[in-house]
């Protein structure tokens, strides 16, 4: 964290001013790299489009059941910037609405797997060398014995194909990676002098875990979270590509690509633009995440 730097006199008195101070310093470091700022702009754009989809999408009614055979399979034009699909729906509008579920999925998956993974990882790391560590980490080993995409695909396959179930599938295959990263951080941090000092002065286990160890894992965890929004979107799209996820007529990026692939290469826009949209999301959150990593790492100025 950046609290190590200079502290102005006002910041010593007022904790709010101190937070503001460290935020300012983080922002300064973050904004040094124009790629990070570009990432931030992309992330904000995605969130903006998702939240205000009904107002910004050119044809909001095209996000659901809508059929207009007169204007089907139209190439990109000024009326339809990204063309229309096989039953005449505006692809740009559908992409904007698809961002909603993609982001919702990423948020739900991370909101469950990050606390759970962090908690198990912290515990296993702090109690490393005991049976607690053995149990938690061996269970984790089993979960990460196959790549998350395959585990998520197979779990989603056995459930009913809905958005909710695809979220469950991705969450189940995602948390162990947070356990793993927190575990490796916590098991080395617990040997630091400040943790031993806290133990000697009789601090409670809860205090040590959450106030001494966790804050020192937070920069790695935050970076991973920012990157993971993109990756969860990607895996979610992979699930909906196979047909496991949000069901038509609701838009999902993967489903749109799968539909478009059947029309390749003549009606290329149906598949290409949703694919580019996924690329945009992953790229945005990657640039943003790398920026956060640079801004929060203490060594680099």
């Amino acid at each position: 964290m950046t609290t190590k730097g200079m502290l102005t006199s006002s910041s010593l008195e007022n904790p709010w001013a101190r937070t503001l101070d460290s935020l300012k310093r983080t922002w300064y470091k973050f904004s040094r790299n124009w790629l990070s700022v570009l990432g931030l702009v992309m992330v904000v754009t995605i969130f903006f489009l998702a939240v205000f989809a009904p107002y910004v999408a050119p044809y909001p009614q095209h996000s659901g059941k809508f059929v207009d055979f007169k204007s089907k399979n139209q190439p990109p034009s000024w009326q339809h910037l990204m063309g229309t699909d096989t039953i005449g729906r505006d692809i740009l509008s559908r992409i904007i609405f698809a961002f909603r579920n993609a982001l919702l999925m990423a948020i739900v998956v991370l909101a469950i797997s990050v606390p759970f993974g962090t908690l198990t990882g912290l515990t296993a790391g702090y109690y490393s060398g005991t049976w607690v560590e053995t149990v938690i980490m061996r269970v984790t080993d089993v979960f990460i014995s196959i790549p998350p995409i395959i585990l998520a695909l197979s779990i989603a396959a056995m459930l009913k194909p809905t958005l909710m179930n695809s979220m469950i599938a991705v969450t189940v295959s995602w948390w162990p990676w947070y356990t793993r990263i927190t575990y490796s951080l916590a098991s080395s941090i617990k040997n630091e002098y400040y943790v031993q000092a806290a133990e000697l002065t009789g601090a409670s286990k809860i205090y040590i875990l959450f106030r001494e160890i966790l804050p020192n894992c937070s920069s790695s965890l935050l970076t991973k979270m920012a990157l993971d929004v993109g990756w969860v979107t990607l895996v979610g799209a992979a699930l909906s590509f196979v047909g496991l996820g949000e069901q038509p007529p609701k838009p999902a990026l993967g489903t749109m690509i799968a539909e478009g692939v059947e029309r390749m290469p003549t009606q290329w826009w149906i598949a290409l633009f949703p694919a580019l949209a996924i690329m945009f999301v992953v790229l945005g959150f990657n640039l943003f995440g790398d920026g956060i990593r640079d801004a929060l790492s203490p060594e680099e100025a």
Binding site: F241, M264, W268, A275, M279
Partner: peptide, 14 residues
Amino acid sequence: IVTPAFAWAVILML
């Protein structure tokens, strides 16, 4: 890295 395999597939096929 940021372009998923299936996006590459679409682009390459195109």
